[in-house]
């Protein structure tokens, strides 16, 4: 059934609204890639963070140095420089990873380097008495870490990890500069096509903001979940 014609107001508001809706599919397509890169790089980053963090703290000398070098190099140089080096320089040495793998690898390693410091800090913050208590109960070093130290350190790791994930999400924008059509890349493309700079970039900023809020929200839930477990432990003892 045809709707009554509110022609005038509708036409008046129609243009910008349909304009935004026109832009959205392209941008959402880009957002999907942005999120994919974020998730994969985050997984890699977390793994690197735990391994390097523990290695710096507990591994014997050569391994320990290796971990320290990794952390210093990735924290000491710029993420964009790393990305360019892996994308432009590495292929000349015969290693060609392609844009997506390069992006995920570099952002993952970068996040992992910062994450290693988070892991180290959280483990260092567990009181010495916990190690001694575990040792007195006959736990070895690995057992102490797994059963006693890590569960306590995990809660302290959550807020800085949340910040790291947001930094990672923001850093994914850099992959637009190595030809990947993420959210930022699509925004640039649309801008060139339509010249509607303000709307496009505001929309893109909003999408990134919402993704970041999602991370904050998720980490908040995780933190409450872990803290709840701890309270139970406290009240039982």
């Amino acid at each position: 059934m045809p709707r009554p014609a509110h022609c005038v107001p509708q036409r008046w508001t129609n243009k910008p609204v349909s304009g935004l809706i026109e832009l959205l599919p392209t941008l959402l397509e880009g957002l999907r890639l942005t999120l994919q890169i974020t998730v994969v790089a985050a997984a890699l980053g977390l793994a690197c963070a735990v391994v390097a963090g523990l290695a710096r703290e507990f591994a014997p000398r050569p391994l320990n140095w290796l971990a320290a070098t990794y952390v210093e190099v990735f924290r000491g140089t710029s993420a964009l420089v790393q990305l360019f080096w892996f994308f432009f320089a590495l292929p000349l040495m015969g290693i060609n990873l392609g844009a997506f793998l390069t992006a995920v690898l570099v952002l993952g390693l970068n996040t992992g380097a910062y994450g290693a410091e988070v892991v180290r800090g959280a483990i260092g913050a567990v009181p010495r008495g916990q190690w001694e208590a575990a040792a007195s109960l006959g736990y070895g070093r690995a057992g102490t870490l797994r059963r006693v130290i890590f569960p306590q350190a995990a809660l302290a790791m959550v807020p800085p990890t949340g910040n790291l994930l947001i930094e990672l999400l923001k850093n994914t924008a850099l992959v637009s500069m190595i030809t990947l059509s993420d959210l930022t890349f699509r925004a640039q493309m649309l801008r060139a096509e339509t010249l509607r700079t303000v709307e496009i970039f505001l929309l893109v900023l909003l999408l990134y903001y919402l993704a970041a809020r999602l991370i904050t929200h998720g980490m908040g839930r995780l933190e409450r979940h872990l803290a709840r477990g701890r309270d139970h432990g406290g009240s039982l003892s």
Binding site: A187, Q188, T197, F201, V204, Y208
Partner: peptide, 14 residues
């Protein structure tokens, strides 16, 4: 919570 790169483009183009 938003990327520096986009903020950079925003100022540059707007």
């Amino acid at each position: 919570s938003t990327p520096l790169l986009i903020q950079l483009y925003f100022l540059f183009y707007v």
